[in-house]
Nucleic acid binder design. Structure first.
Lengths: 229, 229
DNA sequence: ACAAAAGTGTTCACCTTACACCCATGA
DNA sequence: TCATGGGTGTAAGGTGAACACTTTTGT
């Protein structure tokens, strides 16, 4: 008795940060009759190829469809409910991606590719394809949880960033205000930021820029550092 | 262009607790020539059926092969490396299961079914089938991490248990000693144990037995309880 | 009465939290 | 010189770690 075979896809939930808001892109599906969810919102993703790894498939799709360079990619969860695709049984391995996002990206995608970048607090209330709403919800949960105990937030910011910028990012993700002084103290206590000596002018006092010390982090991680915001 | 189809399996890493030790069962594969890993150790698992959910497939396999009633089941990770099965491309969705284990189980399985229950600190050093060693390693990591922030340990104990028994379980999982007084204080602070009035005699003073208050936990969970050992 | 195991209480150090002040720039 | 935003310090409260004593049983 040979085992059954299944359609296997990868789908990615992508998060980008811009001007105080976390965005995620969704495709507006075409209106073709063949589509089980015409005009509905769906994730970036597609069928796995016979000889590529799951992660390679994700990166390929994100590169092909959205011209995105992914900073961080991790497996989220596998969705395999027999009824998730009305046409045929399919398994979707969902991934969770973080990118550095620019304003142009948010706007251009909108017109050219039927892609719309939604603030995660203003996602569509209905018209989701498949179980993609649930996948996005799972990803947002993961983002909120993980950002508090692993330094993944840096992947959403420019290589150089200030402490207040970092704080704004955390506030956007966690959806609550943080105390400036305590936040800075905490971040500095990990000793994972390298001052880049650069100073950038804004309105008030210029802020010190830093870059994240990846090597140092990996070193400390082995010794059991606990990063916790 | 039709999407490719893949063999999809579920594999479960099962944990049971008995007399101060965490055990996990492994199959010793037959010596048939068809087997790519003759005589190697592998997990409980097998191909997914066309119309069953991933979780149902796990429960079915555990019931069929090990006659086990699972107390707790959660998805662990999906392994899909193109080279993980030398015969053909396959995707394995790994699950993580907790059961209530008895001494007879550990011994009987050994003789009858080519199943051997290994203490997780004394797993085979070699002769693992597929990527199952990595899957087990991932599961052990998950167990250690999760037990500290979610009350899953109770699924490994009898319905009625004492605080010292619970502590021994935690010490076995975390592989370090815990202070009796602080542990009891912590556990009681959650207010999730119902004394069953039963008293059990051992050597010294008899200990109070409790059962875990699942309903209360679900209630508190919604209000954002944080269980942390 | 003594050993063994269970149950409870107290102290101290540290970390988190709340909060106030000073500094450097643009307008 | 005033408003705006960035940077640092400090005191109070709560939590976790270390630790000692009492209780109840079997031998």
């Amino acid at each position: 008795m040979n085992p059954s075979k299944f359609i296997v896809s990868v789908d990615s939930v992508i998060f980008g940060y811009c001007a105080g808001t976390i965005y995620t892109p969704l495709y507006n599906r075409g209106r073709s009759k063949a589509d089980p969810f015409p005009g509905h919102w769906s994730l970036a993703g597609g069928p796995l190829r016979p000889n590529e790894s799951l992660e390679d498939a994700c990166r390929r799709k994100l590169e092909e469809d959205l011209k995105l360079k992914v900073e961080y990619l991790e497996q989220l969860y596998t969705f395999g409910d027999p009824k998730r695709d009305p046409r045929n049984r399919s398994i979707s391995i969902a991934y969770f991606a973080l990118i550095k996002l620019s304003e142009e990206k948010i706007e251009n995608d909108d017109t050219q590719m039927k892609v719309h970048w939604f603030p995660i607090s203003q996602l569509p209330k209905s018209d989701w394809a498949f179980d993609h709403r649930q996948i996005v919800a799972t990803a947002i949960e993961r983002l909120k949880a993980k950002v508090t105990y692993e330094p993944i937030g840096f992947n959403l910011l420019d290589t150089e960033f200030s402490i207040p910028q970092l704080q704004n990012l955390y506030e956007a993700i966690l959806e609550r205000d943080l105390d400036r002084r305590n936040f800075a103290k905490k971040i500095h206590s990990f000793d994972l930021l390298i001052p880049t000596r650069t100073i950038r002018a804004g309105r008030g006092r210029p802020s010190q820029l830093y870059k994240f010390d990846t090597k140092q982090y990996k070193r400390l991680q082995k010794e059991g550092l606990l990063f916790e915001v």
